[in-house]
């Protein structure tokens, strides 16, 4: 991790939203590197641009200025379909509001990214079952997503995020809608993803949650306020 090129390299990243004559800057020149296997938390008050940053890092949105290189290749060199394919192969997403498909089984929800991949049908079920087992929900595999508790829903989302064996997992306020017990479980699973060697980029406004990470980037008004290493990381136990 130390001697290699960074997996993510952003330089003077800018994002300006324009709606007619009104332009709103969300990011005004953000630069940092993230190395493979790092666990980074991005913090900041609402409106600081942390969600915008995550969306750009996750190839869901494009910057209006600056550069972003993933594994040495500039994002600008990809068209929208190529971005979709890279998201499908290399990224996993966990959202605050779970974003599971309604009236759809746990198995089918977890299989969703595989359906857009080139994984053959015959392998998809096995991979999805393995991912569901990893978050301890095998007994819920046939349930519809609406029959699950909030914590269980987020674990399904984690299974969905890891089913394609991604190298980077993006988590956008993953504990935001959960009580402290479920939130703790979810963070344990995310920590496990990190221990498996994945790069984790976590957005949160809770200092406690952020301290699961090895490094915390603080955003304020679209620029980096601080970028520091976490001295004392959590080793289990979660409170809000």
């Amino acid at each position: 991790m130390i001697n290699k090129e960074p997996i993510i390299k952003v330089d003077k990243l800018e994002k300006v939203y324009s709606d007619g004559d009104v332009t709103t800057p969300a990011l005004s020149g953000v630069s940092f590197d993230i190395h493979e296997g790092e666990f980074v938390a991005i913090m900041g008050p609402s409106g600081s641009g942390k969600s915008t940053l995550l969306h750009i890092l996750g190839f869901l949105d494009r910057p209006t200025g600056g550069s972003y290189e993933l594994e040495g290749s500039s994002m600008d060199s990809y068209d929208d379909d190529e971005l979709a394919r890279i998201r499908n192969k290399k990224f996993g997403f966990i959202f605050q509001s779970f974003n599971l498909l309604p009236r759809t089984s746990v198995l089918d929800n977890v299989k969703l990214p595989l359906q857009y991949s080139d994984v053959p049908d015959s392998k998809q079920d096995r991979m999805a079952k393995k991912a569901i087992d990893a978050v301890g929900l095998t007994h819920r595999i046939g349930h519809e997503s609406s029959q699950l508790s909030g914590g269980e829903k987020q674990r399904v989302a984690i299974a969905r995020a890891l089913v394609n064996d991604p190298s980077v997992v993006f988590a956008d306020e993953p504990t935001g809608n959960l009580d402290s017990k479920s939130g703790g479980q979810v963070m344990e699973f995310i920590e496990k993803l990190h221990e498996d060697g994945r790069t984790i980029i976590l957005i949160t406004h809770e200092t406690y949650t952020a301290e699961y990470a090895q490094r915390i980037i603080n955003l304020k008004d679209g620029v980096i306020d601080s970028d520091r290493k976490v001295i004392k990381r959590h080793d289990g136990g979660f409170r809000k």
């Binding site: 979709a84 969703l112 990214p113």
Partner: peptide, 16 residues
């Protein structure tokens, strides 16, 4: 809309 967003996020292309 949200379903479409999710599908795109996990890799669905415009054509999909």
């Amino acid at each position: 809309t949200r379903e479409i967003g999710l599908r795109k996020a996990v890799g669905a292309t415009t054509a999909n």
